[in-house]
Design a binder for these strands. Structure first.
Lengths: 199, 199
DNA sequence: GAAAGTATTTGACACGGTGTCAAGAAAATG
DNA sequence: CATTTTCTTGACACCGTGTCAAATACTTTC
């Protein structure tokens, strides 16, 4: 056996950073290889393909992100939790300069996988999976809130609505890049879901 | 002068169909040229670049779509109008088999234009422009509804919320492809905005 | 400690995409 | 009918992905 000359995890981090900034299609393995100080061929040897590399890098990110979310959703009144949730969401896709947007949403839309083109089914599932997990997290939060009398609606429907709004925010962020506006929409959504008066 | 051997508009239609199905990056000018029965070089001569061709094709689509929207938003009670609006929205990105998704949202997210990569600023503006126009349309509808006593909230905030939801729906459509679910979310949104009881 | 074994690295290659360009072809104009 | 102007066509440079065989460097085994 000959040992790897690079750190698997480092490459994953570097790769995801590039994918996040420039999109999957917009990032070449040469870019990543240069940035990581690794030969392009070595990346193929270690990961198989650009898509497989992306997938691993994305799964890594998704895990970290879920943990951060759980933390944000874990304390305070229901209103506080939802506020923290939207906060983290917006902060996440406004990070970097210029902001890089939401990697999940960008990835999901980039896979034009409709006709053999774009990222494949496996990638789509990875994206959908994160969205589903986040939805479940929000739904649990709402259910708990309902038990404490902080919420009176249907947790499943409300969670889906909230997730839809966050995905919409990720899109509007690309269109207008107006962060205060995004936060206003988020606040408005919380008011709608909890009822305007103090929830 | 030597006349064109192809119809400008036909090519635009054919090109947009491909772009819509496979994404901008996923569509090659060779594909379009083959489909349109035109030489690749002629496309460059007539449109300048792939991006410019896409832009023209998209503007064409955007015009048609706006007209259809105006029609959908033009009759009945406020609730009926909003229902028709969501209907057209969902129907639009569920068209084709397999469904092609929302071209605006897909385009917007595909331009990773963060770092010189992806579609350029001009394309971003075209997408953002359509979103802004649709928002204005919805806002006008809500304002008119408010004047007739069908709506009591803030039309600007509500319109923005509704648009955000439609963008979110476009994203979820890619993730889950579950049309009934999308329509449920839409109905739920109308209820939230108008107040559950009959609006 | 030397030799064999094995996974990694490296560079060359095929292929397909974008975009450019010069030369050929087809109408309009005088 | 020649000229002009524009379109068409095919060749080219360049960059991206992905594959492969040969070279390399570390481990294991004797």
């Amino acid at each position: 056996m000959r040992p790897r000359e690079f750190d698997h995890d480092d490459v994953l981090r570097i790769a995801f950073d590039q994918f996040w900034r420039k999109g999957v299609r917009g990032t070449s393995l040469s870019d990543i290889a240069r940035d990581a100080g690794v030969q392009r061929g070595s990346l193929y040897n270690a990961f198989g393909s650009k898509e497989a590399l992306f997938l691993q890098a994305y799964e890594r990110y998704a895990g970290d992100y879920l943990i951060a979310l759980q933390k944000a959703l874990g304390t305070g009144s229901l209103r506080k939790r939802l506020t923290a949730f939207f906060d983290l969401t917006i902060t996440n896709f406004r990070a970097g300069s210029p902001p890089r947007g939401c990697p999940t949403t960008r990835g999901l839309m980039e896979l034009g996988s409709v006709e053999g083109e774009g990222l494949d089914e496996e990638a789509r599932q990875a994206f959908a999976n994160l969205v589903a997990r986040i939805t479940a997290l929000v739904q649990d939060t709402l259910s708990a809130g309902a038990e404490r009398g902080e919420f009176s609606g249907n947790p499943a429907a409300a969670a889906l609505h909230i997730i839809t709004v966050t995905r919409g925010l990720a899109v509007l962020e690309r269109a207008f890049s107006d962060e205060p506006q995004l936060r206003k929409i988020a606040a408005h959504t919380i008011d709608l879901v909890l009822g305007k008066k103090g929830g």
